[in-house]
Design a protein around this nucleic acid. Structure first.
Lengths: 307, 307
DNA sequence: TATCCTTACGGAATTCGTAAGCATG
DNA sequence: CATGCTTACGAATTCCGTAAGGATA
């Protein structure tokens, strides 16, 4: 058993069982990959892959179990590498962050700027994606850190920490009737067409929840994944916007914020890492930047309690 | 990075940093081991071991972190082997069980007998030890299964399941005054010298607890790790014995049991496996033999939830 | 017939053990 | 001076890529 065999198996599963592609990905020859896989299968005494004639078509039942273990093995191997890099005082490396648009656009810039000065030699890979995919990315090791407001705490394989709390804010264009109202109510709000986030994004669930509780059906005419798009359509007078407070901090001159703390439940943005991951010094630093209240030993314990 | 390097590091830490010994254990040459370790250190860019001149004396700070990861890696590798053996339908292998004396003596014989007929080609390694060590053995992978009444549930790295419930029983020799009493009380019992288990063994904590709650100080004249010794001394009229009900089932003719269900809290014997371990079919069978109420999917989930 | 996997083979690189050298308690 | 680690070197093994062969959509 060796690591090249394990890499071949993992890559084969990831790349749709096409060994030619696997060979390219691993910078080796196709017969080599073929051999690695067969040798591992022989050593374990089982078929890992289903074969249709000569072509691989999928995983066998035992193969699925094997793949799980192989993934864990390779993740631990990466942990080992990173441990080495950390303690050898290397400041180079890559910090891979998966975050939603809202985080990437309004929250991360400050953290990234600080990070750049603190660790100038570390490359940052920002992966913007939907909350449900962020968890996947972190679980698979493709991202070191995941940041989102929804859907991170459901995964056993992740440890997540609260970063900060925020509210939704109503955004209207110049001269909108709501600007004259002292305290906006949900009923009032529901009289206008609304523009807000897609389901599953940026606290959308709390918006729906608020309306449902008061048995009001809002007229949501348009949803988007990001606040810029929402603002764009509010400017075009298509409706009243509901965006995250972070997005409402720097509005263009023709748009105006109206507080909505009293209407929608507050949201907590969380940062997540894979349970058992070895975190580089700079990754820990970045997390602490995002969640300043988080104690270092809390973090270490939560991530490594598996020991 | 390769597995031989990892094995060398682990073995070095286990064998007191004597590379000559490590070489023997791994059936290779001493310079080979030396090289493996140095190459891994070079690849990771750190010193794993403290050196005093040429000799290894211990782990460096980073080395401790590295060792943790290495241990996990090698355990996963063993999991992979076992997965192969399981699915390839091999009935050979070894089931390593760590248990207390009481379990080994009175509970395991039946399970082992059943196991021998079901899996005649699997060797059984019974490791008898103190409860606190059982957890260690299972955690380190030296034992597949641990069985004890105390001290298994405290470990995050273990998953444990209840096997069966039992009580303590009072044991007295022929003609003892307690035999004439209808229902023994703690006060009455405390008037005699007592012989029972060592602290930390076989439900001893529940015995102490019962006396403490009634503010009685029993006169425990002798403690032992196992029931045979206790019975021996009861026979010699040194005092009244308190043993596990399993041990009182087959008493010699000159000793007599007196129920004590009403005096001491009942005990639950538990079986534990390492979280994330891959369990061979026969190991699962053995566990089910011990804990018949345990559902298969419960077990699988608890052990592998890490995925 | 184009794609994809296997087999065969030979050269290259790695690995490993022996023997000798050196440090330490 | 005995134990224990390192260095040096050569042999053996393993590894890997190229080229050819065969199966399948």
């Amino acid at each position: 058993m060796n690591f090249q065999q394990l890499r071949s198996v993992r890559e084969a599963a990831r790349r749709g069982y096409n060994l030619t592609e696997v060979a390219n990905a691993l910078f080796t020859s196709q017969p080599g990959v073929s051999r690695q896989i067969r040798e591992l299968e022989e050593e374990l005494g089982i078929d890992i892959f289903e074969r249709n004639g000569k072509r691989l078509t999928g995983l066998t039942e035992p193969g699925k179990e094997v793949l799980h273990i192989v993934e864990r093995l390779l993740l631990e191997a990466e942990n080992l590498q990173r441990a080495g890099e950390t303690y050898s005082g290397k400041t180079t490396g890559t910090l891979s962050i998966a975050a939603t648009h809202t985080q990437t656009r309004y929250v991360l810039p400050r953290a990234v700027q600080h990070f750049r000065t603190a660790f100038p030699d570390v490359r940052i890979a920002l992966q913007q994606s939907a909350p449900e995919h962020i968890a996947e990315w972190v679980l698979s090791g493709k991202a070191d850190i995941g940041i989102a407001t929804e859907g991170l705490s459901r995964f056993e394989g992740l440890v997540s920490f609260p970063c900060y709390e925020w509210h939704h804010v109503i955004v209207v264009p110049d001269g909108h009737p709501l600007l004259a109202v002292k305290s906006v109510t949900l009923e009032l709000l529901a009289q206008y067409p609304l523009i807000t986030y897609d389901i599953g994004f940026t606290g959308r669930s709390h918006i729906d929840q608020a309306f449902t509780e008061q048995q009001i059906s809002p007229d949501i005419v348009l949803t988007a994944m990001d606040s810029d798009v929402i603002q764009q359509y509010v400017t075009m007078n298509l409706g009243v916007g509901i965006v995250a407070s972070m997005a409402a901090e720097h509005l263009p001159a023709n748009l105006h914020p109206i507080p909505a703390n009293h209407l929608f439940a507050s949201n907590v943005t969380r940062v997540a890492v894979r349970r058992g991951a070895f975190l580089r010094e700079y990754a820990i630093d970045f997390i602490q930047q995002l969640a300043p209240k988080l104690k270092l030993n809390e973090l270490a314990e939560a991530v490594n309690w598996r020991r």
